[in-house]
C-alpha cells in the first residue's frame, strides 16, 4: 500500500513535464522576439514573466496533489 502511495505521488509530479515544456517554448519565443525587436524588451519580458507564472502553476498544482497524496492517504 505504501509503495502504491509513493507511486501515486510520483505520478502527480509528472505535471512538471508540461510546465517545463511550456516555459521552455515561451522563453525560446521571447528570445526570438527580443532578437527581432530589441527595443521591445521590457514589454516582452513582462509578458514572459506572466506566461511563465501561469505555466508554472500546473507544476505547483501537481506538487500540491503529490503532497496531499503523501499526507492524507
Amino acid at each position: 500500500m505504501e509503495a502504491l502511495i509513493a507511486i501515486g505521488a510520483g505520478v502527480a509530479v509528472l505535471t512538471g513535464i508540461g510546465a517545463g515544456v511550456g516555459i521552455g517554448i515561451a522563453t525560446g519565443k521571447a528570445t526570438e522576439a527580443i532578437a527581432r525587436q530589441p527595443e521591445a524588451e521590457g514589454k516582452i519580458f513582462k509578458n514572459l514573466i506572466l506566461g511563465c507564472a501561469l505555466a508554472e502553476a500546473t507544476a505547483i498544482y501537481g506538487f500540491i496533489i503529490g503532497l496531499l497524496i503523501i499526507l492524507l492517504l
Binding site: 508554472e56 505547483i60 506538487f63 500540491i64
Partner: peptide, 13 residues
C-alpha cells in the same frame, strides 16, 4: 484560489 495556491506552493516547494 490560483493566486493563493501558486504563492503557497512555490514557497513550500
Amino acid at each position: 484560489l490560483s493566486l493563493c495556491m501558486r504563492l503557497f506552493g512555490n514557497m513550500l516547494a
